[in-house]
Design a protein around this nucleic acid. Structure first.
Lengths: 230, 230
DNA sequence: TACTGTTGCGATACACCGTATTGGCAAAAT
DNA sequence: ATTTTGCCAATACGGTGTATCGCAACAGTA
């Protein structure tokens, strides 16, 4: 009896933990989107039966929450930002970059309150950067307003990106590619302003558009933070 | 043989159309959320077999798109708004109200480019209200920035609302209700700014918070629209 | 060492999903 | 009256999340 035909021992089960499970789920999602994440596939990637996961996770929703919080670790700034504006701008851009790396995050962003440790840490450093600049309510509103902006902007950006990817081409050709549908609609003449926008609009790249809108919002916040509490 | 025991004729199949299908789907979603919408249940509500729907709809995603566009009909303003600010503010508030009536909309908002006729009509009147106030690129950025804000804000509001509903109580009791988890986290002292925010923060109602953030963003837009094109 | 209790894992099972395929039946056409 | 056509229902398939259950390996005790 040689070594190589000795029957495998029944595959000593590799010990599992949340980290490994979450990592496997993220890998699947990065490769095939959120819809490629099923408990069965996650388990298979860890050489385990599906039910095994329930020892570490109580539901699929919980797994999704853990995935999100894991990505928040990438969003946490390396050092406490210098001023509030840099803190908020950095947060927005890091969130955007993380979402470009993990597109599935766009489907989850803002869908549920983020209470994981990493998300809390992100919120903490953000609040700390704004501490004392105005009364608490104003600070909260500032953070939430900026957060609402970049959350929505990122979602839209990913949505457009996917649509372009699906039809195959850039927004310029998009009017044609997006099918007869839109073209026909615009041709009806019922949407003159929209037609002008589609045909005459400059194609701006997503990042600058994101950054510009962000600066607008930050300008607005600056104005409100400056005012003394009523 | 009397009338009432005459055997039913084999249930003359009610003729179907997209409208009825979409209406049934929306009704289901209003009652039980998006996860209550399955082609089987929609069909059942119309006394039809599931496969029957495929004569009018080619995929479930398409049905969801149709549902969204149907709600955009509620968002369309009744009359062309007077000025740009009112146009954008109204759009934001109507979208929010529609989402409060159809909470599932929050799960779909911003998830996909909206190309249905009603959504296009909404975009059209919005663009028309801003037409000529600045160069096209600036106008587009204005619309997109405001849209990103209220999209994100609405999603967060619904997410919080669901969380509160799940734990049962208001945000004030939420720190306790949200389970040992958050409380323990805050008690670690690793999140001083966040703890202060949670414990000392005023509870502001969602609508004013939404409106305030919106006004900030509109102020910012006003500043940019005022500037002459570079 | 023999036996027993416990624990954790795998297999099985259930209800449901979106959708492809098939077959029969009623209406329309010949 | 017969054939053809078009639509609808039924069936089927491969997937999903999760409850249940039985077994096998280990721990502790006599």
């Amino acid at each position: 009896m040689t070594v190589w035909d000795r029957p495998e021992p029944p595959t000593r089960p590799v010990p599992l933990d949340r980290e490994r499970i979450v990592a496997a789920a993220i890998a699947l999602a990065d490769e095939g989107g959120l819809e490629a994440v099923s408990l069965r596939k996650v388990a298979a990637r860890l050489d385990a039966g599906p039910m095994r996961l329930y020892g570490y996770i109580s539901t699929k929703k919980e797994l999704l929450d853990l995935m999100v919080d894991e990505v928040y670790a990438e969003i946490l700034p390396e050092e406490q930002p210098a001023d509030w504006r840099e803190a908020l701008r950095g947060l927005a851009h890091r969130t955007r970059q993380a979402t470009l790396r993990h597109e599935w995050l766009a489907d989850l962003l803002g869908g549920r309150p983020t209470l994981g440790p990493n998300a809390l840490a992100v919120t903490e450093t953000t609040l700390a950067a704004l501490d004392g600049l105005a009364d608490l309510d104003t600070v909260m509103r500032a953070v939430e307003t900026v957060g609402a902006y970049f959350t929505g902007a990122i979602r839209r950006e990913i949505a457009n990106l996917r649509a372009e990817r699906a039809t195959g081409l850039s927004k310029r050709d998009w009017q044609r590619a997006s099918g007869p549908h839109l073209t026909r609609m615009l041709a009806t003449g019922r949407f003159p302003a929209l037609a002008k926008a589609v045909y005459d609009g400059t194609e701006v790249d997503a990042e600058t558009s994101f950054a510009t809108g962000l600066d607008w919002v930050l300008d607005a916040v600056a104005g409100k933070l400056a005012q003394p509490p009523a």
